[in-house]
Design a binder for these strands. Sequence first.
DNA 1: TCCTTAGTTCAAAGGTTATTGAACAATTGG
DNA 2: CCAATTGTTCAATAACCTTTGAACTAAGGA
Lengths: 118, 118
Amino acid sequence: MTLPHPTADQISLPIVLGVLGDPTRLAIVRYLASKEGVPMNCGKFLDLASKTNLSYHLAKLREAGVTRTEAVGTSRLITLRRDDLDKRFPGLLDSVIAAAGEDKALPMVGTADTEIEA
Amino acid sequence: MTLPHPTADQISLPIVLGVLGDPTRLAIVRYLASKEGVPMNCGKFLDLASKTNLSYHLAKLREAGVTRTEAVGTSRLITLRRDDLDKRFPGLLDSVIAAAGEDKALPMVGTADTEIEA
DNA sequence: TCCTTAGTTCAAAGGTTATTGAACAATTGG
DNA sequence: CCAATTGTTCAATAACCTTTGAACTAAGGA
C-alpha cells in the first residue's frame, strides 16, 4: 500500500503555498525541517491536533508534494521533499522555514500541552 | 480615505502564504513584480477577473500586507510591499516571484482575452 | 450640471476547508 | 489468539472562500 504522491514536475506553486498557509501544517513543516534526515511518524505531531485531524493535514502536505509518506508497519515515515521542492522552487522552502522559525504565533511541537496529561 | 494596511510587524507568514495560494492573486503579484516601481491601478488586472472580483482579491492582498493601495482620485495605486516583506521574510518574495515566472498554469495579465472583445 | 470612469459594498449562492467522533483496518507484542 | 498501537475512512457540521450582479460612491471632464 503505497500512498499517492505527485511527481516533482506535478508539484504546483499555488497549491504548495496554499497548503503552507495553515498554521498547523506550517508547524509540521518547520518541525520536519528542524529534524531533517530523521523520518517522523504521525504521533510526533499530536501536540498540534487530534489524530484524525493530523491524518487530514498530513495528507494535504503529501498530496501537494511537500512531504513524502511511506508506510512501515502501522507507522508512517514522513519526510520533507526538500530536493524536489528546491528543484522546482529554488529558495522557497529555505525562506519559508527561516521565516516560520521566527514566528511566535505558530503552534509548537514538543512544548507538550498533551504530554502533560499523558 | 486611507485604506487599512497591517504594519510590517503585523504581517503574518501563514496569512501571506495562504493569500498567495490563489492563482489569480499570484498572477497579480507576479505582474506587479515584473513592473516594479510602476504603480498599477486595478484596471490593469481585468484580464484576470471581473471588477468586483478584483476588488475582493486586491483587498485580500492589501489586508495580508502583500500590497499597498493608495487612493488617488477614483483610482487606486497598487504597489508590492517589497521592503516590508523582505524585512519580515527574507528571500520569500524573490523565490515566489521566480517560481511564479516559470508557472505556465498561472493566468496572464496582458495576454488579453478581454481586450479582443473590447 | 450631467455623464463617464474607477472602484466599492452588499447579499446571495456555491464551493472548499477544517474539525470532530465513531467505526474501521493492519501490524506488533504478550 | 488477544490486545494494544498506529493510523485511515466516513459522515456530519461549521466556517470560510470565491464568484456573481445590482446598486452604490466619488472624482473628473465636457
